[in-house]
Amino acid sequence: MNPVEQVMSARQAEFQSAFEAAKQSATTFETKLNERLNASTQAKTTSVQTVTDAELARAREAYEALINKSETSSTATTSSTTQATPTGELTNWNNYQIKPISAENEGKYSDLIKTAAAKYGVPEALIKRVIQVESNYNPNVVSSAGATGLMQLMAGSNRTDPATNIDAGTKELAGYIKKYDGDLKLALAAYNAGPGNVRKYGGVPPFKETQNYLKKIIG
């Protein structure tokens, strides 16, 4: 089961659990409503439990929530089914369009990229574009700051090895995506300028290099 299928399965399980709970509330609402109606014609009976307005209101809210959730979930399920594309084939992440790589680099390190994408849940298109911008697919590039390899890592051993570099770089990028709740712009800013600067400036740092970096990767 690929990462997208795992997420869909988890969401379906969550909805089923919520649906069952709401369904029980709807049943309670129907029961209490009937009791309320019967109570008006059975005033002589003291054993009938009185249903308060607050209880009835809460039951009604649960009932309406069930109806609304069912309609919303039906639409979401259809949408999820039509968008169940393998993670590596996604070209959009959190409303940002990932720019394509050059034709000359297409296909390079594809197996390593595919493996890292599946392992860390990062779109292949994003990994490819980061490599394009960072090193133009040259595993031996070393920056003036000492960043090394395809994804220009600053730490770790054997950083020029493509497999090690792509795995470590994708892991770092995935960590930032999680840290910033899927905001790709902040994740890439942290990858380029460091999370400390993102925190310091409360968003994308005002560095020209970082701002140009984002423009090169996402639209």
Rank of each mutant, 00 (worst) to 15 (best):
K185C: 03
A145M: 08
F29Q: 03
A189D: 06
L186H: 00
T45F: 10
T78M: 13
S9M: 13
N165A: 01
V7M: 15
K216L: 09
L66A: 13
K69V: 09
E30G: 11
L126T: 09
T28S: 09
S144T: 13
T91W: 11
L112F: 05
A18V: 13
S73Q: 13
E104H: 07
D53C: 03
Q152V: 04
I131N: 05
S110E: 14
F207Q: 05
A22I: 06
N94F: 07
V51C: 00
I177F: 04
G219A: 14
I166H: 00
S157H: 00
S74W: 08
T77Y: 11
A155K: 15
L66R: 07
R36A: 10
Q16G: 13
T85N: 09
A21N: 12
A22H: 12
E61L: 10
K108M: 08
P139F: 06
S17L: 15
A57W: 06
G219P: 11
Q6L: 14
A125S: 10
L184R: 03
T72H: 11
V48Q: 07
A174F: 00
K69L: 15
P3C: 15
F29W: 04
Y63F: 13
W93L: 15
Y180H: 00
T210P: 08
K44C: 03
Y137S: 10
A22K: 11
P195A: 02
K216P: 08
P206L: 02
G194V: 02
G149Y: 01
L37Y: 06
N95A: 07
D167F: 04
N165M: 02
A21R: 14
T31Q: 10
E106D: 12
P205D: 02
A10K: 14
P205S: 02
R129L: 01
N197A: 10
A62W: 05
A65S: 10
V141T: 11
A190P: 01
E20N: 13
F29R: 02
A22Q: 13
T148L: 14
Q211D: 05
T81E: 14
K179R: 05
D161P: 08
D161Q: 07
T72I: 11
R159A: 12
R159E: 06
K178S: 06
A18D: 14
N68A: 15
E61Y: 07
V7K: 13
A54R: 04
L56V: 04
I218G: 12
I127N: 07
I101K: 05
Q211C: 01
G175M: 03
N192Y: 01
Q211P: 03
S74A: 15
L214K: 06
V198K: 01
G196L: 00
S17H: 14
A76G: 08
Y191L: 02
T72D: 14
E20D: 15
A54V: 04
A174W: 00
A62M: 10
Y137T: 08
F15W: 15
N94K: 09
F29C: 04
E64K: 07
I218R: 11
S25D: 11
D167W: 02
K108G: 08
T170V: 01
R11V: 15
V4M: 15
T82S: 13
G156K: 05
N38P: 00
N136T: 08
T210E: 06
A174V: 01
V51K: 02
G194E: 03
N34V: 02
N68G: 10
I218H: 12
T52Q: 04
T210C: 09
V48E: 08
A190Y: 01
K69M: 14
K200P: 00
R60E: 11
G182M: 00
